[in-house]
């Protein structure tokens, strides 16, 4: 193991802003992309007279 303690791990040798800034923003961007995709799919797969989308999930009114 590289890290003596959890604090040491989060400190990243003084580069915490750069390292965690990279990882957090990247995963946040992936999350945003996925969120918009899922949202768009739910909207589109809503059809008249049906309360289920194409995945078979029930869509709340």
């Amino acid at each position: 193991m590289e890290w003596a303690s959890l604090t040491e791990f989060f400190r990243m040798g003084g580069y915490s802003i750069y390292v965690w800034g990279s990882y957090c923003v990247s995963f946040f961007l992936f999350f945003i992309e996925l969120y918009f995709m899922f949202w768009r799919f739910r909207e589109l797969s809503k059809t008249e007279g049906s309360d289920k989308n194409l995945n078979g999930d029930v869509i709340e009114a």
Binding site: M12, G13, G14, Y15, Y18, V19, S22, Y23, S26
Partner: peptide
């Protein structure tokens, strides 16, 4: 570079 190089795994 110390720990900062770990950005490479995402960059």
């Amino acid at each position: 570079q110390g720990e900062v190089y770990r950005i490479i795994f995402i960059h």
